[in-house]
Design a protein around this nucleic acid. Structure first.
Length: 174
DNA sequence: GCCAACGTTGGC
DNA sequence: GCCAACGTTGGC
């Protein structure tokens, strides 16, 4: 097993979808806009280059109801750069602008992630909830709003098994 | 430091 | 659309 950490990153597909990640230069983006301190702490202090990421599509707005991939893990990614300041917090034109974040002492951080693979079929929240090994997943906790969540190695392995992914890389095995 | 009010998230 | 859960704000 690879010596790395595992995470789940949550995003509303209307804001930033797995397709958006795949379509980014080098299939890579800075995971910006996190404005929650617990999620920030994970990004800044715990997420490391080489860590594996499950990409989850949440459903904030009713317009997404019918979206096939809403409420599902839709892909995997890998962290290619550890924490550095979230510059969108310094930009008054950005929706993530936070006047209290001082460039000399930033409040908010990003990590860079690169898409690894799209799942052959989205793994729905409903399907995940039926798997005994995933009972303790942060994602499935009632009221959990964390957009950056730690994933246990055993949970990562269970998801890889369900989605026919190589647990070493998160890429498809077939 | 307490806590009520408020805003947001996100599943249903 | 509804609303429970959660985080933040601000008066005291």
């Amino acid at each position: 097993m690879a010596d790395c950490g595992y995470w789940l990153f949550k995003s509303e597909p209307s804001t930033f979808s797995f397709d958006d990640l795949v379509g980014s230069p080098q299939s890579t983006t800075s995971w910006d806009g996190v404005r929650n301190y617990q999620a920030r702490n994970y990004l800044r202090d715990a997420v490391r280059e080489g860590d594996r990421v499950l990409f989850y599509h949440s459903q904030g707005s009713p317009a997404l109801r019918k979206t096939r991939e809403a409420l599902s893990i839709v892909g995997t990614a890998v962290v290619v750069r550890s924490a550095h300041p979230d510059v969108t917090a310094f930009n008054s034109a950005s929706p993530g602008f936070d006047p209290r974040s001082d460039p000399t002492r930033p409040t908010w951080y990003v990590v860079d992630v690169r898409a690894v693979a799209r799942l052959a079929e989205p793994l729905t929240r409903q399907a995940l909830a039926e798997v005994p090994e995933l009972r303790a997943m942060v994602l499935l906790r009632k009221g959990s709003r964390l957009s950056v969540q730690p994933v246990h190695a055993s949970e990562w392995e269970a998801v890889c098994r369900l989605a026919h992914l190589d647990p070493e890389t998160g890429a498809p095995t077939r």
